[in-house]
């Protein structure tokens, strides 16, 4: 019988690799009887889903107030300009 600690490993591991049949059966059985682990699994799935949802637009996680400062923008502009002229 798996412990809650084992279950936490399996749940976290399932994000990295496919679990074996034995692991899956053990996990399902434990989750069936253990509320704490069920909540744990639910939370981990929610976090996984959130990352998946961000997928193609990771920058939407970046808080809105974060952006290129005018100074940094000017630095980039200068660097690019300099290189544009050296690679016409």
């Amino acid at each position: 019988m798996l412990s809650c600690k084992d279950v936490s490993h399996l749940v976290a591991r399932s994000a990295d690799r496919k679990l074996s049949l034995t692991e899956r059966v053990g996990l399902r059985f434990h989750l069936w009887i253990c509320d704490q682990c069920r909540r744990f699994e639910h939370n981990m799935a929610l976090i996984g889903k959130a990352f998946k949802q961000l997928g193609a637009e990771p920058e939407s996680l970046c808080p809105p107030h974060i952006g290129l400062s005018p100074e940094a923008e000017e630095r980039l502009r200068q660097t690019l300009k300099h290189h544009c002229h050296s690679h016409p």
Binding site: P58, E59, I66, S69, A72, E73, R77, C84
Partner: peptide
């Protein structure tokens, strides 16, 4: 049009990079 890259995509690219690198 590289001359316009900073203006058009600079902020977007910076935010994209910030999401992963987390340091300005």
């Amino acid at each position: 049009d590289p001359e316009s890259w900073v203006e058009r995509y600079g902020n977007y690219l910076f935010r994209y990079a910030m999401t992963f690198l987390r340091e300005e």
